[in-house]
Amino acid sequence: MPTTQAPTSRAQTLSGAVILLVLLVVALGILYKQALYDPLSWGRPTPPPGAAGPAGGPLDLAGLQVPGLAPLGPPESFNAQTLSDKINGKAELYLSAGFKALATRRYHPPSDPQAWFEAFVFDQGQEQGAFSAFSTQRRNQGQALDLGAVAHLSGTSLFILRGPYYVEVIASGDTPALQEGMRAWAKAWLALAPAPAKEAGQRELDLFPAEGLDRASLSLLSANVFGWDKLDQVYAGSYQLKGQEATGFISRRADASQAKALADAYVEFLLGAGGREEPGQGLPPGWRLLNIMGTYELVFSQGAYLAGVHAAEDRQTALDLGLAIHERLPGDKP
């Protein structure tokens, strides 16, 4: 049966147009609705009342006024019990480094309401703790910032070390507006936090021999260092010597006998983990050199310091770096 279409009536065309208009309104309504988003209601922790620290202090983000930035929601604060609510999984890293309190707040630059960044101010109690958090969270491709403090920008994140405070600012993107906002925020915040005489860890960091050292790699490992739960508070830095890689480490203990006992126990741990003791010729007395699955571990104590080389690619690199560290360490030389 052949069909011939009757011409479309005006009424049909008109009602069709009205319906399409309604669909357009529906679509706009949906698009508008999706922008109304309250992340709090879906399971982010509600902030406990009160600031993390005293008013006007570095933790008082409610009192911090940043020109050109609009806060996105109230500041939140967390203590050691509630830290894992905010940073799932990584809380242990801060807790082991003496974590006291965390204050956070989200902001967005007025020029781009869709973009936002969140500032995390960690109070680590002591300068060492802040340095530990700062150094272990550091990214490789960082760009140092001239803010009158240890600070660098890496992609979408900005990191600051200031006294006992470690600050992370994480942004939703890397647009210029966001980076501008993050810098402005950092400047305003640094005004709240007085600069210490010398940033933490300088004393130990100065002990690392400069040759072959990647300075950006210097870090303070607070706990469970090199996979051993007894080893803590170890400064470590990566080296490249004659094309071979190794990690030097230095840890100051309470006194010489404790440093010695820890060195011995660490060697025992390495032996238990499958290490083989290397013959001792050419080694200063008391030094222990182990081969563990093809890399070399050198351990010794010197005065109150436990020091050594971790994961050296060959025996000679381990010895060279060990001797270089030994030269710079104070205390009774063997």
Binding site: I30, K33, Q34, A35, L36, Y37, D38, W42
Partner: peptide
């Protein structure tokens, strides 16, 4: 935008 946000 491809996640929950405020989509009805």
């Amino acid at each position: 935008y491809w996640q929950l946000r405020g989509w009805p």
